[in-house]
Design a protein around this nucleic acid. Structure first.
Length: 589
RNA sequence: UGGGCUAUGGUGUAAUGGUAGCACAAGAGGUUUUGGUUCUCUUAGUCUUGGUUCGAACCCAGGUAGUCCAACCA
């Protein structure tokens, strides 16, 4: 990836830069991206990925991919592969793939040390009792009756917790900190719980599993992470993170295992997008209820969905770069993401002609059997040093004939002066071909002779004449006309195709809050609380479109621009027999 | 109602005690074989009240608003 060297650094990059300059961590920089493998990555993760991997790349460090797999109830190997695929697609490379479960033995040994130090104890109360004792944010909690039980007893029970003979919920290991702390995370947090469940990586070795707070900082420490970067909601965890890291440093020193100072946690604002729902729980409902066609539906905010929608990795990264990293809880406008997408696709999309809502156009004075081959530019933004479009290797063949399709809304019977497209008495240019004109002659009933209509009054065919001297590339083509340039395809050379046009899934800016409120007010949950806010027109399929034959041979996910319409890509389900295109984003304006 | 974090045009972000700048959006105009692209221009901002200072968007205090924290989730 290319970074603009002179661009100002975000606040975390500034910290890293000065840490490096001061020689902290022996001049090392190490980060990690720590997803829980319990679902697909979404655009919010992309922001974290761009930070974690990007900062390591930028400052000569390393970033590991670490699966945060401490809860075997929710996690699965299926997601690991999807996560790796998505990160690679975004263009990032990890130092190595790690697993929190790699550290289960170390974590266990450390937990035993904590017990021996009198800093942890086994609690045998029910979860309800523990919750009640925790107090509230405004009232201090009270100590567990098991808090001061003998070290040897806790140690014996802790080992018992992992035997498989303890029922889940009967015992937990808690850190002895401060039940009156204003920070709720300090009120004797749970370190280990019994699950008695097979783990997809460690099998049946463990029955008791560590909690997030007793895993994350420790994993960072064991791995050698210097900067542990996460989102703002983990700010209240930082104090506890630091405490456990300090304990671990002590343990490490006593056992001569570790020497380094340890990682530090930094937080940035997570990505919120308007008209977008990001939460895994709700996304799952959409897939289960068939509102969307799976996790990679082009309307989903998942990375695989956005990829299928037609975004390039660079478009996503550009967008993330534009919104930046701060500590302000912002709500970003989806329009900015679309603008970033257009900006990128403009430089890489191949221009093709596709008529999405066709109406037939007959060139009356064009010879019946004649076919002309012409050249169309693939990408006019491909320019040489003088700023001229490069033609060499940047064109493909198209065919012109007597019968064409044009866009139905490019013709108006009475469009008025501001309508610069086709109509009776109007002249337009056909892209890469000829200037054509419709006559304004009327028959005895006052109907325009250039328009054929069916019995319902719908236009079925338009007649025009071409000016043979105005073929593109010829001197006569320089003639200036008032009308615009229209795209078209030849009836006998174009291919029928399916075009899927997408819009936002949601009709309200903040679907998460809207759904939450609807759930509260109406006592319903899940899909029933979502329906009122779903956009019924988020997918409009057009099966009657035609596209030039050049598009037939393009591979899945090719970036295209349907000229004058928008950016599209080739759907992975598209076949030569049944071409399918997804609308990525419309053209501006 | 305890604690933490935050507040700059409509949106996002920069300015790190010394000229409030950029992008998107919106509007006007020029160019154009995409009503695209591109170019020019316009509109519009430091939440509030005090304090420190020669000087405050920036530091301090109060207020207001938003947000996070009371899972045997991460």
């Amino acid at each position: 990836m290319n970074y603009e060297l002179n661009k100002s650094l975000n606040f975390i990059e500034q910290i890293v830069k000065s840490d490096l300059a001061e020689g902290k961590n022996d001049g090392r920089l190490q980060t990690r991206f720590p997803p829980e493998p319990n679902g697909y990555l979404h655009i919010g993760h992309a922001k974290a990925i761009a930070m974690d991997f990007g900062i390591a790349e930028k400052f000569g460090g390393v970033c590991n991919l670490r699966m945060d797999d401490t809860n075997p109830q929710k996690e699965d190997t299926e997601y690991v592969e999807a996560i790796e695929r998505d990160i690679k697609w975004l263009g990032f490379k990890w130092g190595k793939v790690c697993y929190a479960s790699d550290y289960f033995q170390d974590l266990w040994d450390f937990a035993e040390w904590c017990i021996q130090q009198g800093r942890a104890y086994v609690d045998e109360q029910t979860s309800e009792e523990i919750a009640a004792q925790k107090g509230t944010p405004t009232e201090p909690g009270t100590n567990s009756p098991y808090r001061d039980r003998p070290v040897e007893e806790s140690l014996r029970l802790f080992r018992e917790m992992n035997s498989g003979n303890v029922e889940p919920g009967k015992m937990i290991l808690r850190a002895k900190i401060d039940m009156a702390s204003p920070n709720m995370h300090f009120r004797d947090p749970i370190m280990y719980r019994v699950l008695n469940m097979e783990h997809w990586r460690t099998g049946n070795k463990w029955n008791a599993y560590p909690m997030y707070d007793f895993t994350h900082g420790q994993s960072d420490y064991l791995e050698g992470v210097t900067h542990s970067i996460c989102t703002l909601e983990f700010v209240p965890h930082r104090e506890l993170y630091d405490l456990f890291v300090a304990w671990m440093r002590e343990w490490g020193a006593q056992t001569s295992r570790f020497t380094y100072q340890g990682p530090r946690q930094f937080e940035f604002n997570k990505l919120n997008l308007n008209y977008t729902l990001m939460s895994k729980r709700n996304l799952l409902v959409l897939t289960k209820e068939g509102v969307v066609n799976g996790w990679d539906d082009p309307r989903m905010p998942t990375i695989c969905g956005i990829r299928r929608r037609g975004y390039s990795p660079q478009a996503i990264l550009n967008f993330i770069d534009k919104i930046g990293y701060t500590t302000f809880d912002a709500l970003n406008d989806i329009k900015l993401m679309e603008a970033a997408c257009r900006e990128d696709l403009n430089t890489r999309a191949i221009r093709v002609s596709a008529v999405v809502d066709p109406v037939k156009l007959v060139i009356d004075n064009y010879p019946e059997e004649q076919v002309e081959e012409m050249q169309a530019v693939n990408n006019p933004e491909l320019r040489d040093a003088e700023g001229n479009t490069i033609m060499e290797g940047n064109t493909h063949a198209i065919h012109f004939s007597k019968e064409l399709y044009i866009e139905r809304d490019d013709f108006m019977e009475d469009g008025g002066k501001k309508f610069l497209r086709l109509g009776p008495g109007k002249e337009v240019r056909l892209k890469n071909a000829y200037i054509i004109a419709c006559s304004d002659e009327q028959d005895e009933n006052g109907n325009y002779k250039c328009i054929e209509k069916d019995s319902n009054g719908n236009i079925t065919c338009i007649h025009a004449t071409y000016d043979a001297d105005t073929k593109s590339g010829m001197p006569g083509a320089d003639r200036k006309i008032k009308g615009k340039t229209l795209h078209w395809v030849s009836c006998q050379h174009s291919i029928p195709c399916e075009v899927r046009n997408y819009a936002c899934l949601w009709t309200c800016e903040n679907p998460r809050d809207a759904i939450k409120q609807y759930e509260k007010e109406n006592g319903v949950r899940g899909i029933d609380a979502m329906r009122p806010f779903l956009n019924p027109e988020s997918l409009i399929i057009n099966k009657n479109a035609f596209i030039e034959e050049f598009a037939k041979g393009l591979p899945a996910l090719s970036y295209l621009q349907f000229q004058r319409i928008g950016y599209y890509n080739v759907d992975p389900d598209s076949t030569p027999e049944h071409l399918v295109f997804n609308k990525t984003v419309g053209l501006k304006g």
